[in-house]
Design a protein around this nucleic acid. Sequence first.
DNA 1: TCGGGATTTGACACCCAATAGCAACCTATT
DNA 2: AATAGGTTGCTATTGGGTGTCAAATCCCGA
Lengths: 147, 147
Amino acid sequence: MPKHQTHRMTRQRELILEEIRRSKAHPSADEVYLMVRKRLPRISLGTVYRNLEILCELGEIRKLDLGVDFKRYDWDPKMHYHIRCLECGQVDNAPIAPLHSVEDELHQATVYTIIGHKLIFEGLCPACSQKVASGEIQPPDQGAADR
Amino acid sequence: MPKHQTHRMTRQRELILEEIRRSKAHPSADEVYLMVRKRLPRISLGTVYRNLEILCELGEIRKLDLGVDFKRYDWDPKMHYHIRCLECGQVDNAPIAPLHSVEDELHQATVYTIIGHKLIFEGLCPACSQKVASGEIQPPDQGAADR
DNA sequence: TCGGGATTTGACACCCAATAGCAACCTATT
DNA sequence: AATAGGTTGCTATTGGGTGTCAAATCCCGA
């Protein structure tokens, strides 16, 4: 257990934070890598992973474990929910207020110490909804949301 | 897109379903592999993965993407939520009724076609709560739930 | 009961997101 | 400017999960 660890602001860390904020989206580590590499071509993917982790610890950004494919990183660390397209994987914010009551409710009913919760919606983004409606692609079968 | 595919009930598939039901828990593919191997020592891990997938498609069990480490499989395919210990990784059912209203609420506010949602609680199981209380281990730092 | 085509198995190679190890380098502080 | 130790880039590695394919198995119809 190390004592308080100091962090330095390197050009790499600075650019990673800048690019993820500029994107205003939910990019993967690899997407961040591609964005930053345009301005710092010799940066390595490992450095991106390390700094994303540190920026999470500092509370500047947030890591999203949506339980699919790969992790994403959110420029906005404030508590909010997400919705993910089952067809193309796109991720957007879900405009729903945080549910405070469910944790209270569960607190009555469980022997766990509750610390938090994750709520992830799954569906079809506008573009993929359109494709399904026009018959261009098949809709995901029921249950896909939990597979 | 193949026409309706027939499935056979092999000894492997039968035992996998039997063991996961007997466990009444949320084992990983590897844990299922270890359980089944006691009765069928020559079964391969690939067979376990393939059959767990097929049993999900058949609606006999359910795959859980809790967004951490590895996927788990639930003997009970009925819709319910889960809670996961941030310290030891144990997973249990969360005794909370399914939230129907949130999807309706979101439907009003988004351009997505909503298909489903996942709600995952995070906290400390009784054993790990005890360890924290006695000072044996450190509590997870805030934000750990989303990292 | 038997035959035969489709499904399934076991073994092994492979994929890929993410992490570990390490010497050289850089940042911040004195 | 000198120093301490956090940081980088590189490379190798991990580990859950998937793909391939010949051999084995299942099941349905004759």
